[in-house]
Structures are given as structure tokens and as C-alpha cells.
């Protein structure tokens, strides 16, 4: 669909910009199992969307496809109108070269359930590694940015610590700072509090609420924290079997779900 390369900067003022994210006829198979089929949706610029649905409904797969951690079996994913992994040329589906993929991928960041900090690096180095070696920032610049971000997640005094010396909640806040240091347009959050002890969840969600309030980063959130979803997202998409079965603003979705499967799912988790 979108083939012209519109400028990728904040385009709120430009006329009819391409959506930030578009899934077009996306299909994903693992071996012979089809996990996603004919999936179509768009996410607007700066929009924050929560994905809910039973385990195995394909939420993680959607995020991983966007992060290029999984190969798309068929279809297209567009980011600001640019092809992510496959382009359409003369009606044909063409795989992009790794260099081209890397260009678009830079606009996307992800925070994982298991944090995935680099244990061989200090907290500070975890955050500055990519800005220095991917964005070409100077060491000083990257360090200054990193310290500002650490301030924001309340961990400036742990800059020299190693990840193994931190609690899970602290590690996850560092992982958030690390993703933000790349100045992403899109942030993917996959059950970022699911691996945490309950008493540590609040701090992490607090940081994310702050990010949602103070930036216009487009966010795709998979979470079981319904209050959080309500607070930060403008739209909730309910998935089942790789399909969107219902979507609505959170108040509506959580108080008056229309679809029977949504009702059952929400009853089960609340």
C-alpha cells in the first residue's frame, strides 16, 4: 500500500501521514503451525495500544515480528510507510537487504520480559553501548544521556553497578533506559512486569507511565496489568488464535466488552 517514502520525522502536521505501523496481510508460521493469518491493523503515530488475549494467541509473535526477531512468512509490515522486511515492487514481494532492514529497525526499541541486560557490562555501558556503536554518539554525549535516563528511572546512583547486583525491578528499569537511549519512535513492551516480584511491579509501571506522559513514543504493550493498560493506552486489542476479536478504548473494553471471548478472558484475569 504505502510505497512513497514519506519523511519519518514527527509528521503530525503533514497531510495524511502514513500510519506509524501497518500490518498488511501478515502471516506467520512456525513450521507447519500457522500462528498469524491475514492479520491487518494499523497503529497511529504516538498511539499507545495494549494487546491482550489468552496465552498463545500470538501477542509476542506480533512484537517479535516488528523487532525483526522472527521472519515474516507472508505479507508486509510498514513503519512510517517504509517496508520493514519486505517491500512490494511491481506487485511482487521482495525481501530487503539486511542493511535496509537495519535502517528501519533503528526506529524500534523493545523491552523484554526477562530484561536481557548484558551481564558483562556495567549499567552505564549497557545503556551507552548502542548509542555509541549504532548512532555514532561520542562517549561523553552517550554517557550524559544515559545518566539523564538513569535519573528518570531512579537509578542514577547505580550507574557503575553490574546487572547481577540489581533487583529484577531495577534491571527492568535499566532495560527501559537502554531502549530509550536509542530515541525510538516505537517501543515494544512484552509483559515487562511478568517476571517481577509483585512488590517491584509498581516502580516499573511508574516509569512507563512517565514515559507515556512525557514522550510521544508509539507504544505496543502486552500486559496483564489492566489498570496500567487503562492508564496509558488509548486502544486495547483483544487477540485470540492470532486474530483480533475485538478492539476498543480501554474503558469500553474493560467495562463493556462486546465479544464473548473477551468477556470470558477478562473475567478470568480480573
Amino acid at each position: 500500500m504505502p510505497t512513497d517514502s514519506t519523511p519519518t520525522t514527527e509528521a503530525a502536521t503533514s497531510t495524511d501521514p502514513a500510519p506509524r505501523i501497518e500490518f498488511e496481510d501478515v502471516e506467520k508460521k512456525f513450521g507447519k503451525t500457522t500462528v498469524l493469518k491475514d492479520l491487518n491493523f494499523t497503529i497511529g503515530r504516538g498511539e499507545r495500544v495494549t494487546l491482550i488475549g489468552p496465552s498463545g494467541s500470538g501477542k509476542t509473535t506480533i512484537l517479535r515480528l516488528l523487532m525483526t526477531l522472527e521472519d515474516l512468512t507472508d505479507g508486509y509490515i510498514w513503519v512510517d510507510g517504509d517496508p520493514l522486511t519486505h517491500d512490494r515492487r511491481d506487485g511482487k514481494r521482495v525481501e530487503l537487504k539486511p542493511k535496509q532492514i537495519a535502517q528501519v529497525r533503528k526506529r524500534i526499541g523493545m523491552v523484554f520480559q526477562q530484561f536481557n541486560l548484558f551481564p558483562n557490562m556495567s549499567v552505564l555501558d549497557n545503556i551507552t553501548e548502542a548509542p555509541i556503536h549504532v548512532l555514532g554518539q561520542s562517549k561523553d554525549e552517550a554517557k550524559e544521556n544515559a545518566l539523564t535516563l538513569l535519573d528518570r528511572v531512579g537509578l542514577r546512583n547505580r550507574a557503575d553497578a553490574h546487572p547481577t547486583q540489581l533487583s529484577g525491578g531495577q534491571q527492568q528499569r535499566v532495560a527501559i533506559a537502554r531502549a530509550l537511549a536509542m530515541d525510538p519512535e516505537i517501543l515494544l513492551l512484552d509483559e515487562v512486569t511478568s517476571a517481577l516480584d509483585p512488590e517491584l511491579v509498581g516502580d516499573v509501571l511508574g516509569v512507563l507511565e512517565d514515559v507515556a506522559e512525557t514522550t510521544d513514543i508509539t507504544m505496543l504493550i502486552v500486559t496483564h496489568e489492566m489498570q496500567f493498560a487503562r492508564d496509558v493506552s488509548q486502544r486495547v486489542m483483544m487477540f485470540d488464535g492470532g486474530q483480533i476479536v475485538e478492539e476498543a478504548p480501554p474503558e469500553e473494553m474493560f467495562t463493556r466488552p462486546k465479544n464473548e471471548r473477551t468477556q470470558k478472558f477478562l473475567e478470568a484475569i480480573i
Binding site: 523487532m67 526477531l69 549504532v134 537502554r178
Partner: peptide, 11 residues
């Protein structure tokens, strides 16, 4: 997860 985090950072 280490490889994936590196990919997510575009290293």
C-alpha cells in the same frame, strides 16, 4: 535473549 537484545538495539 542476549542475541535478541543486541538485535533490538540494532547492534
Amino acid at each position: 535473549g542476549q542475541w535478541e537484545a543486541a538485535t533490538a538495539l540494532s547492534l
